[in-house]
Amino acid sequence: MNASTSAFSVRRAGRRAAGVALPLALAAAVFAPLRASAAEVAVASTTVSPSRITSGEQAIQTVTLAEPAPAGGVVVDLLDGNEYEDLTYWQATKHRATVPAGERSVSFPIRVQSATSPGTVTRLTAGVDGSVAETSVTVDPIDARVQDVTSFTVDKRIAVEGSKITGTVKLKSPAPVGGLAVDLRKTPYESAAVSFPSYVVVPAGATGATFAMDVTAYDRPRFATVMAALSTARQFAGVIGVPKKYSIGVLGPVRHQPGNVENFGAVGLGDLWHPFGARINLTSDTPGVRAYFSDLPDGSIPSGQVGAQFRISVDASVPAGAKVKLTASWVLGPSPVTTEFTVED
């Protein structure tokens, strides 16, 4: 049972309970018209105009009821029919639309996620109390010769929990009338490093737009790859969130032969005051495993940074399955912090 169905059932049950306290004839006269009115609240149709768009473009969805909405209006549940939820459509609609009292229809702007192949169909449904209508919008990829996401940058690669990172997307050409939506996604999807909108709109005539990302790494350093996508055009930026406390964490699998997103971690200084920087020593309890700051030879994190990324090297002599403890010692700072990981292969 959905939320609107539940609410409707509660209202209907309340009317039945109230009717018990009234004379039968009066109850019939008062409540029968209301029940009849509620029974007529059904979705007759939903449409999208235009029914075919290019990735990033806006369309207008209309939901029409069989009868005018009663007092208080009617909340319509909106869903996409994709195998995986269309986060762009969710942000545009929040899965709800309200038909005002006395009206039969409501229209509202929508965006759906961009397509990577021609003729991609996104099914859309609108429902009220068990009545459902369906429509669809066909999405074509954008022509990369004309339009493209040329860059995606963040103003901070590492930020402390509770703060914000600003992302900036750039297009090859000015956005058309109605603006152009660039999809934003993160990997891993459930990462608690940062949160941000599911898309950002580049206004008509502009070639760029900014958006805010909230840092949510409350317990330990966390990492996420953020993607800005428009059809097959994709740009990536890696971001690290650190908690407000002094912390250390390994941010991916650790292997003997690492890939691009393996064998690294981060030390977070949090919101601790360090006007002269922070000297950090990294040590391992396992011979053959070493952690080091590749861009900070002496381990000194500048005063303007809230943390730093480090690399991990694993000698071939270290067996897979070995458990390793890393320690970050802040010279003349707070007590050391540790983290543990397992060498995967």
Results as ranks from 00 to 15, higher is better:
residue 334 P to R: 10
residue 212 A to E: 12
residue 137 V to K: 05
residue 133 A to V: 02
residue 232 T to K: 12
residue 116 T to E: 09
residue 94 K to H: 12
residue 92 A to N: 03
residue 293 F to H: 04
residue 266 A to G: 10
residue 296 L to N: 02
residue 27 A to K: 06
residue 98 T to E: 09
residue 248 I to E: 07
residue 277 G to S: 06
residue 136 S to T: 08
residue 127 G to H: 06
residue 203 P to M: 03
residue 162 G to Y: 00
residue 318 V to Q: 01
residue 279 R to V: 02
residue 344 E to Q: 13
residue 69 A to E: 04
residue 109 P to N: 13
residue 287 P to R: 06
residue 69 A to G: 01
residue 204 A to I: 04
residue 216 T to Q: 12
residue 323 K to H: 12
residue 223 F to E: 11
residue 197 P to G: 12
residue 64 T to G: 06
residue 317 S to Y: 01
residue 136 S to N: 10
residue 205 G to A: 05
residue 80 D to K: 07
residue 270 G to T: 05
residue 194 V to L: 09
residue 172 K to L: 15
residue 217 A to P: 14
residue 339 T to S: 08
residue 124 L to G: 00
residue 44 A to Q: 11
residue 216 T to I: 10
residue 218 Y to N: 14
residue 94 K to G: 11
residue 100 P to R: 15
residue 161 E to R: 05
residue 281 N to A: 13
residue 178 G to V: 09
residue 163 S to R: 13
residue 283 T to N: 08
residue 213 M to Y: 03
residue 79 L to R: 13
residue 304 G to D: 15
residue 225 T to P: 10
residue 196 F to K: 12
residue 155 D to N: 14
residue 91 Q to Y: 05
residue 9 S to F: 04
residue 88 T to W: 03
residue 39 A to C: 05
residue 213 M to S: 08
residue 13 A to D: 14
residue 125 T to Y: 06
residue 231 S to H: 12
residue 142 I to S: 03
residue 260 N to P: 04
residue 98 T to C: 07
residue 152 F to C: 01
residue 57 E to I: 00
residue 275 P to Y: 01
residue 194 V to C: 10
residue 85 E to L: 07
residue 121 V to L: 02
residue 239 V to P: 01
residue 118 P to L: 00
residue 212 A to T: 09
residue 14 G to W: 07
residue 207 T to W: 14
residue 128 V to K: 08
residue 240 I to A: 05
residue 253 P to A: 08
residue 99 V to W: 00
residue 101 A to N: 06
residue 306 V to M: 10
residue 230 L to M: 04
residue 179 G to T: 02
residue 66 A to V: 06
residue 80 D to W: 10
residue 204 A to D: 13
residue 340 E to D: 08
residue 303 S to C: 13
residue 113 Q to Y: 12
residue 44 A to C: 04
residue 326 L to Y: 05
residue 324 V to W: 06
residue 13 A to M: 11
residue 129 D to S: 05
residue 205 G to Q: 06
residue 336 P to H: 07
residue 253 P to E: 03
residue 191 S to W: 02
residue 202 V to E: 10
residue 20 V to Q: 11
residue 90 W to Q: 15
residue 135 T to S: 09
residue 7 A to L: 14
residue 26 L to F: 11
residue 277 G to C: 04
residue 234 R to C: 07
residue 4 S to W: 09
residue 311 R to P: 09
residue 107 S to D: 11
residue 139 V to Y: 00
residue 190 E to W: 15
residue 321 G to W: 13
residue 156 K to R: 14
residue 154 V to H: 06
residue 13 A to L: 13
residue 345 D to M: 03
residue 297 P to D: 03
residue 179 G to K: 01
residue 317 S to N: 14
residue 183 D to K: 03
residue 89 Y to E: 03
residue 255 R to V: 07
residue 5 T to E: 15
residue 51 S to G: 15
residue 20 V to P: 06
residue 20 V to H: 11
residue 325 K to D: 07
residue 82 N to G: 14
